[in-house]
C-alpha cells in the first residue's frame, strides 16, 4: 500500500502541494481529476523521487521512501510525452527496465509485452518511425514490464486524438487488471477519470480531496461531473424533442 501523509511543497511563496494525504491499496487505480497548474505534476514527480518535498512522508508497505533515490523506488513516472529513448529500437526501449535490473529472459518477456501491445511488427523500428499512439504504448509497456510498485501517469493520453485515446484507455484497463497495477492516474478529463479509476480524487490549488465512493465524486459540483451529465442530458432532450 502506498501511503502519503501531509506532503507539502512551495516554490518561492507559491504553495504547489498543500498537506496532501492519500492511501492507495495494492492493485487499485486512483483517478485524480485536476486542471493544469493544480499541482498534479509536482505531486507525481515528488512521489517518483524526482522532486524533494518540503515536508511530509511517502511510505510503501510501511517503509519510508525518503531515503530512496528515484531508481530504487520502482515508481515510474509517465508523462504526456512518451519520452522514448530516440536512439534505441522499440524492443530495446521496452527492455530498458529489465536490462537495468539484469533480469533473465529479456527476449521472451519483451516479446510477450510486444504482443500484448500489438507492436510485434514494429519491434526493430526507432521511436521516430511510430505514430503518437504507438509511442505512448511503447512508453506504457516499458514502464510496466518490470512490474513496478506504482505507476504515476500524468495525463498520459492528453495529446492523442479521440479515437486513439479511447483504445488506449481500453488497453490500460485490460493491462491494469491483468498485472494488477497500482496507479495514480492524473487527468483533466471527467469521462476518463470515471472510466479508469477505482477510487477518485479531485485536486485544485495544491489541495487533494479524496472521495469515499464514485457516487460522492459525481455528486460534488466542483468536479464538474454534474455539468457534464447535464450537458449530455440537454443534448439528449434536444434530440428526442426534434419534430
Amino acid at each position: 500500500m502506498l501511503t502519503i501523509e501531509n506532503l507539502h511543497k512551495t516554490y518561492h511563496t507559491h504553495t504547489v502541494l498543500h498537506q496532501v494525504t492519500l492511501e492507495l491499496p495494492l492493485g487499485q487505480v486512483l483517478a485524480v481529476l485536476g486542471r493544469s497548474g493544480c499541482g498534479k505534476t509536482t505531486l507525481l514527480k515528488t512521489v517518483a523521487g524526482l522532486l524533494v518535498p518540503d515536508a511530509g512522508s511517502i511510505n510503501w508497505a510501511g517503509a519510508s521512501m525518503e531515503a530512496a533515490p528515484p531508481r530504487n523506488r520502482e515508481m515510474v513516472y509517465l508523462s504526456q510525452e512518451p519520452l522514448l529513448f530516440p536512439h534505441l529500437s522499440v524492443f530495446e526501449n521496452i527492455a530498458y527496465g529489465l536490462r537495468v535490473r539484469k533480469e533473465a529472459e529479456v527476449q521472451a518477456k519483451v516479446e510477450r509485452m510486444l504482443q500484448e501491445l500489438e507492436l510485434q511488427e514494429h519491434a526493430q523500428k526507432k521511436p521516430a518511425q511510430l505514430s503518437g499512439g504507438q509511442r505512448q504504448r511503447v512508453a506504457f509497456g516499458r514502464a510496466i514490464i518490470f512490474l513496478p510498485r506504482v505507476l504515476l501517469l500524468d495525463e498520459p493520453f492528453a495529446s492523442l486524438d479521440a479515437q486513439t485515446r479511447a483504445s488506449m484507455q481500453q488497453l490500460f484497463l485490460r493491462l491494469a487488471r491483468k498485472y494488477s497495477i497500482t496507479a495514480l492516474f492524473v487527468t483533466h478529463d471527467v469521462k476518463e477519470a470515471l472510466l479508469i479509476g477505482d477510487r477518485f480524487a479531485y485536486m485544485a490549488a495544491g489541495k487533494l480531496r479524496i472521495y469515499t465512493s464514485g457516487e460522492a465524486f459525481m455528486e460534488d459540483p466542483t468536479t464538474g461531473v454534474r455539468d457534464e451529465l447535464a450537458f449530455w442530458n440537454s443534448i439528449n432532450h434536444k434530440i428526442t424533442n426534434l419534430p
Binding site: 517518483a48 519520452l83 530498458y96 518490470f146
Partner: peptide, 28 residues
C-alpha cells in the same frame, strides 16, 4: 528540457547515473 526528462525517465525506470550516462546521454 527533453534530455533532462529522458534522464529522469531513465532514473525512474531504475537506472543508475553511470548507466544513464552510458546508455542514454553519451549515445545521444
Amino acid at each position: 528540457h527533453e534530455v533532462l526528462q529522458l534522464e529522469q525517465q531513465s532514473q525512474t525506470l531504475g537506472a543508475t547515473a553511470v548507466y544513464t550516462l552510458q546508455k542514454v546521454l553519451l549515445p545521444l
